[in-house]
Design a protein around this nucleic acid. Sequence first.
DNA 1: CGATCAATTGACTTAGCTCAAAGCATGTGG
DNA 2: CCACATGCTTTGAGCTAAGTCAATTGATCG
Lengths: 247, 247
Amino acid sequence: MAKRLSPTADNGIAKFRASLPDDLAHSAIADELCAISQHKRLMKSEALVCDPQTDRLVYIAAGAAKLVAQPSAGSESNAMQVLAFHFPGDMISVLRERDSDFRLIALDPCELLVFSTDRFLDIAQGEPAILRWVLTRSLQALHRSRTRMMQMGHKSARQRVADFLISMAEHGGGLAGKSCRLILPMSRRDIGDSLGLTIETVSRQFTELREAGLIKTQGRSLVQLLDMPALAQAAGQHRCAGTVQHI
Amino acid sequence: MAKRLSPTADNGIAKFRASLPDDLAHSAIADELCAISQHKRLMKSEALVCDPQTDRLVYIAAGAAKLVAQPSAGSESNAMQVLAFHFPGDMISVLRERDSDFRLIALDPCELLVFSTDRFLDIAQGEPAILRWVLTRSLQALHRSRTRMMQMGHKSARQRVADFLISMAEHGGGLAGKSCRLILPMSRRDIGDSLGLTIETVSRQFTELREAGLIKTQGRSLVQLLDMPALAQAAGQHRCAGTVQHI
DNA sequence: CGATCAATTGACTTAGCTCAAAGCATGTGG
DNA sequence: CCACATGCTTTGAGCTAAGTCAATTGATCG
């Protein structure tokens, strides 16, 4: 059993165990994995620092984070790219990379479990079900990344922003009705960087969506999606929760 | 041992075995995997058709292929997106998807091994090293996908085309010197669809690169990279901005 | 209650898209 | 083997969506 570090560490570990396949939550393998895990807490805007020599697997127990890449070369000013936003329950692979380093930055206070990928896999090799669990999640992540790439490809600013809001709503879970309240943990800059748009364009899109009656905003981070089917349509007739209406 | 289907089938299977971790190439597990593999040959432009109900793993033994996604809904005209190009030795995961179907289309005659992902993993569970092998490749694919997504984000047409050429050269293997000959198996349209650009823009970029003395073209598909360092720089820097200092 | 940074709005510029026409390869039939 | 036909590619001329620059408004915190 993992040594008692602190109540919150135990809490994070418990969440990790719970996310594993049911029958493995309390297996010896799970114990081993927990034992090699490093428990980290990040303050808002703090970056996860870890040995850049090894690949890492990071499990998010609580909080939201962004995975960013910044070209190491020259131009400091702009050019920060947000590759993905991550939420509790996500397992992220952070590969070491020579030219552009990838970093995980907390959007709000985060609780993480960090594993060395190699050591994790060495242990997981003893239990193929765990290996398969990680593999399945990776394939899904790959699939999601490809789907998003598809969208980045040729979509308008309106479509990207609408799609972003829809996908945030999917995470929030409030997909039930037509409307949905969201608290966005990320700034407009983060949103822009993740969509390949400028903050100004993002802001203008928010304004237009508000004027079209599709959303309502309040303060920086509170957004209310008033008509999700219409939003989904604005996003390009993709995934709408219940009703996909033809055009 | 897998039943002898045909000389080419055996050839494809041999390549698959060779790509596995050394000590497993002739293991019983490898035999089992080969036994459940479906050997397919595709003509140029032919799509891989397989049961859309199950996820598939596809190993490319020979030929080049593109992974495309087309939004199922309405608009036929444009909106075909090329998610990735694949080459011999690649292992691709084709997930079934309800709204937008992903298809693998041959760019030239292809030789493929197709596995049901579930059955593959069921067998691979007997040999964690194979599971880990697939996982490692998936994480790399994810990483590549993210890197490309980053580029799709905010990069100019020039940067995208230059980067595309560089990455094609990496596949060709002729990375040694400053120059490199490439035979592109894909059309300008495919290139455009993969970069989120129109064929016209791709063509114009080729022209400009030619006029800048960075490449030389001959016919549709032959491209000669004359100055790869300069190309790499064009792929990286060259922030559009108001002040475009010519090269 | 200012100080400070994020977000919005406006005016202007431009990269890349659209539409349209002309050149080239590649394959086919005489 | 050559002429033709077809589809790919290149080139050209506007247009528009989104970026840049700049100034204002709004929120958040010591």
